[in-house]
Each structure stands twice: as structure tokens, then as C-alpha cells.
Design a protein around this nucleic acid. Structure first.
Lengths: 193, 193
DNA sequence: AAGCTAGCGGAGGGTTGCCTCCGGATGCAA
DNA sequence: TTGCATCCGGAGGCAACCCTCCGCTAGCTT
């Protein structure tokens, strides 16, 4: 299950004093920007500067570059998984497609982070689980309804979609066109609808 | 046109003395390794070390990190384009698929480089042209033969394939399976074969 | 074989980013 | 309001990397 509201908060304890919490959030926001802009190698001092916070504050909250990565990453994943709720009312195919569109938006920013965390991180693994438990039901429902081919798994879809999003597209139109092609590949050989 | 044999060699003049040429090649090889391993931020001193060459030699050949990038990148593109020859004898669909498989192998290593060059580089643009003139005929032939849908362009295919390759796959089997799904998406709505 | 010059290597100065440490500021409880 | 525990900021030492510069080495030519 792993409901979205009461997620496993084992890591990254948010501080309790008001000003501290403000700084913590500012740092995450700043880090998200900096990483999106300069890749995973962005300077931590730059992150602190963006957040209008001393470098010491950054290190107190996130002793390591990796800690900061993970915090940003977890935040993103949480938002994504949360967005899977409410899609159950749509028809199977539409629900899946809608969620995959959100997934695309999610991956677009996170490629640099993912690249870093890929190598060895239980957080990454745990987020992966989270994502699967959000998306896999949608996929299975679509397969049961016969609108998605049966010979592939949800992990295949994740790779396909997350991959193609990593390429930067000159226009949203092209991105959607390409995404459409990929989605067509998901249909059963002689797909209804 | 831009034939593969007599490519536009405007940049990156290879040195003429024997030892210098040896060093130049060693540097490119070392750089390819280093970039593949540590991403585009790999240390240039490390590259020199791998090539068993003084740091001064590196800078003489490639005054700038970017110069080195471009040299490596161009070398890769050349190999890829060259591999398109000889595919014309295969049936249209098979030829396209075969070339795309090679393309996948090419992109796998080059994502870090591409990311760097993306922003502003005529070399990148010129390589893009080169790739297109190698792959687009294969695509058009397949479309003419009716085995690839008509409502997409070669650039869409490039994005789709290059994108999905950027994701790292745990096993070659999965990579091929996913690639297969993507390729199915290229087929016309009611595809023969 | 001998000379000329292209090419070599790596020491070293400058820059940037990482991370620690601690005196001072400030939210919160009583 | 007061007191204290928590949190802040940024100076500064350290390490890594960038790139230049120049005395020496070794291909190539005649």
C-alpha cells in the first residue's frame, strides 16, 4: 500500500523550530532550481546563496551533497505519487496515459538527480517502490481491460517513458507526438479503441 | 550530402608528427573512457594521466574542455554514420531497425557529452546533420514501403530512441524488449509484417 | 649524421568549491 | 519577560582542478 499521506519518513527529519523549517524549505527549493539548472554538480555554496542562507545552515541540514539530493528527490516522488489518486475514475487507458504524462513532467527535472542516486541508494529503491505502487495498478487495470499488451511489465513502461523524456524537446508538440508514438507501442497487436 | 568518407574536417586538426599523433589518439581514447565513467565533469588531469601524457600535451591539443568534448563526439558520430552503409541491401524495416540498434549503442555512451554540447555548438548541429543524412533515407524507405507510419518524421524517431537509451537498463534483455515496444509504435496503425 | 624545430612534461600560481567551527542571534516555553 | 536551547552565518583551512610557461627531448629532413 504505502499510502501517500503517511509516507516512510525514515530519512531527512524536518526541523522543528519555525525559522529552521523556513530555511530547510528554502534550501530544498533552491537546490531543486540549482540542480535543474547546472546539473548535479551545482555548487552547494550557490544553493545556499539562492536560499539566502549561510553555508553553515546548509551543512547542518544536509551533511552531505547526497543528503540534499535525496531530500529533493523524495519530495518530487511524493508529489508524483500523490497525483495518482483520483485517476481511478477515468477509463483504464485514459487513466494510465494521464499518469504517464505527469510522470514525464516529473522525470524531466530529475534526470541529473536520478543519475547520481542510481548507483547505490536505498532511498532510490524505496522511491522506486513508491512509484510502482502508484502506477502499476493503473497499468494492470489497462491490461485487464485489454487496451495494453500483456507481454510487458510496468517496469518496461517506466523505462520507456522516463527515457524518452530525458531527451530535451524543442517544442511541447514534438514531445507529445513522440510520447504518442511510444504509447501506441503499448497497445495490444490489434488494439481496440 | 556530406559523404561519410570526406567529412567536414574544419575543426580538430590531427597533428602530423608520429609521436604527436599517437598522443592525440591516446587522449581521445582516454577522454572517451573518462567521460563515460565520470560524466562530462571528469577531470582533465585525469584524462592526461590515463593517456600517459603530460597535462601540457593535453592542453596543446585541446585548448579547452569543449574542444576535447567535440573531438570525442565527432569521432563517435563518424563511426555511427559509417555503419549505415551496407544496410541498403536489407529489407526496409530490417535496415531501419538494425541501424537504430547501432544508434542505441552510440547514444548510450554519449549522453553526457550531448548534454554539454547541446547548448551552443555548431559542431553539434553539423553532427546532427550528418546523422540525419545517414538515417533519414532508411526511414523514408521504410515509410514508402508502408512498414512505418507516415505521420512522424525522422527527428521524432531520433528523440524516441535516443531518449529511451539514456535510461540505464539492468539487463540487455529488458533494453531490447523496451526498444521493441518503441519500434512497434513506429508501425502503421494496421501494419503488415 | 647532424641540425632544426615541433612537441613533450610537469612545476606552480590562481581559482573555486568543500566543509568545520564557534561567537552571536532568536524562537519558544514558562 | 526572561532564560535557554536551538539555530544562524560566514571566516578560513584544505583539497582539487585549471591552465600557463619554459627548459628539454626526439622525430624528420637533407
Amino acid at each position: 500500500m504505502t499510502s501517500a499521506g503517511q509516507a516512510p519518513e525514515v530519512f531527512a527529519q524536518r526541523p522543528k523550530r519555525a525559522d529552521a523549517r523556513r530555511n530547510y524549505d528554502a534550501l530544498i527549493t533552491a537546490a531543486r532550481e540549482a540542480f535543474a539548472e547546472n546539473g548535479a554538480a551545482a555548487s552547494l555554496e550557490d544553493v545556499a546563496r539562492r536560499a539566502s542562507v549561510g553555508i553553515g545552515t546548509l551543512y547542518r541540514n544536509f551533511p552531505t551533497r547526497r543528503h540534499l539530493f535525496e531530500a529533493v528527490y523524495v519530495e518530487e516522488v511524493r508529489a508524483l505519487c500523490h497525483s495518482a489518486e483520483g485517476l481511478a475514475e477515468l477509463p483504464p487507458w485514459d487513466a494510465l496515459v494521464a499518469w504517464l504524462h505527469r510522470f514525464v513532467a516529473y522525470v524531466a527535472t530529475k534526470r541529473a538527480l536520478a543519475e547520481q542516486l542510481l548507483h547505490d541508494s536505498e532511498i532510490f529503491a524505496s522511491c522506486r517502490t513508491e512509484i510502482f505502487s502508484a502506477g502499476e495498478p493503473l497499468m494492470r487495470r489497462a491490461q485487464t481491460a485489454g487496451v495494453v499488451r500483456d507481454d510487458i511489465g510496468f517496469d518496461d513502461v517506466v523505462r520507456l517513458i522516463s527515457g524518452l523524456t530525458m531527451a530535451q524537446f524543442p517544442s511541447p508538440e514534438q514531445r507529445d507526438r513522440v510520447l504518442g508514438v511510444a504509447l501506441d507501442g503499448l497497445r495490444p497487436p490489434a488494439a481496440p479503441r
